[in-house]
Design a protein around this nucleic acid. Sequence first.
DNA 1: GCCTGTGAAGCTATTCACAGCT
DNA 2: AGCTGTGAATAGCTTCACAGGC
Lengths: 209, 209
Amino acid sequence: MSERIPDKVVARLVLYRRILAPLAEQGFERLYSHQLADLAQGTAAQVRRDLMTVATAGSPARGYEVRALLRGLAAMLDAPDPQPVALIGIGNLGRALLSFFAARQDRLRVTAAFDVDPAKAKRTLHGCPCHLLEEMPALVAKQGIRVAILAVPAAEAQGVADLLVGAGVTGILNFAPAPIRVPDHAYVEPIDLALALEKVAFFARRERA
Amino acid sequence: MSERIPDKVVARLVLYRRILAPLAEQGFERLYSHQLADLAQGTAAQVRRDLMTVATAGSPARGYEVRALLRGLAAMLDAPDPQPVALIGIGNLGRALLSFFAARQDRLRVTAAFDVDPAKAKRTLHGCPCHLLEEMPALVAKQGIRVAILAVPAAEAQGVADLLVGAGVTGILNFAPAPIRVPDHAYVEPIDLALALEKVAFFARRERA
DNA sequence: GCCTGTGAAGCTATTCACAGCT
DNA sequence: AGCTGTGAATAGCTTCACAGGC
């Protein structure tokens, strides 16, 4: 059951679920791979390939059964219990991310925020308690936190990442504008906003064929 | 000169520049591909391959000359003039992004923000004037805006994207949690924050080999 | 000796295309 | 007839490995 699943596939599975959930609520019962592909902007072949990783996909004659698919996706994507998430760095970007993620009532909840600056800790922001960074390892251990959002300046990113991994975190969403290195058993998803905007600007200029 | 450059390469070139700039200021004159690779978390071969796209890379015997590289990168990545950027959607996420990007004093400046909601327009946020969405096409045309940041709800994303492209935008940084479709001459970079966090949570659970 | 630039090999991800099912 | 599941082909990216330069 642990066929290494590529991260692109996971991303699409999450997307499929997001597309299917409202359809199920509207009473949609079945759909074809090409319909889901249209909604997700992929190809039918890719949808089928992706869904192969969802064991229970089992699709008989008239396409996929929406509710069964959703069940399969949930079994694959969700933890049995809600997962607590830590956010490190309560600066400009950190606060913005906190307001964004705190707003979501999800299986993933930001339950603790941290900053080195005492002026930023010791308060509650968007319903999330803020602590001093030095309290992080203890709290992460106590709450069993495995997922962290990193929103510190580039210079501190690697140091904090090391602390996080040392405390038991195995997944980091890295917004710091610097690549970080983690041991093999941990996973990093980098999101570099400034870099992304530069990329868009580059292609915006160029794509006027 | 228009060898289609893959977007992964562009991303790394932007990163290289970010790494090299401070080195140049500290007086660093030359470096080897493997040194840059270490700093950028890549391989030496990849750095060399990437730098091949920067025409002026020309690197003789003792590695790459930092200042020449930076010049080459700037020539490739930067527009001759600063590029104005529009931001659409002044909700939670839009404001957060505005505060983040407005803080940057760059070749890329967010010069106009838009929202359908009159309560959110007609004011200045983080030094950026906010307008009604209906004024967008005229303003985009007047300022010659080619790059837009899309931060509207999923349901509106496609409609607004169509408007943007119609107004002359050719690059969109899409934060809406929905894929958007644009004509071939335009470029979209999707950043789906909620999806990214789900992905991290998935691998965080799994990566405890 | 140790570097760069680069053809060639190797990998990974996507798409094709068709057998099997209803 | 039109779908799924999937081996086989393809395309895109990364790494290897070596010729050529100092």
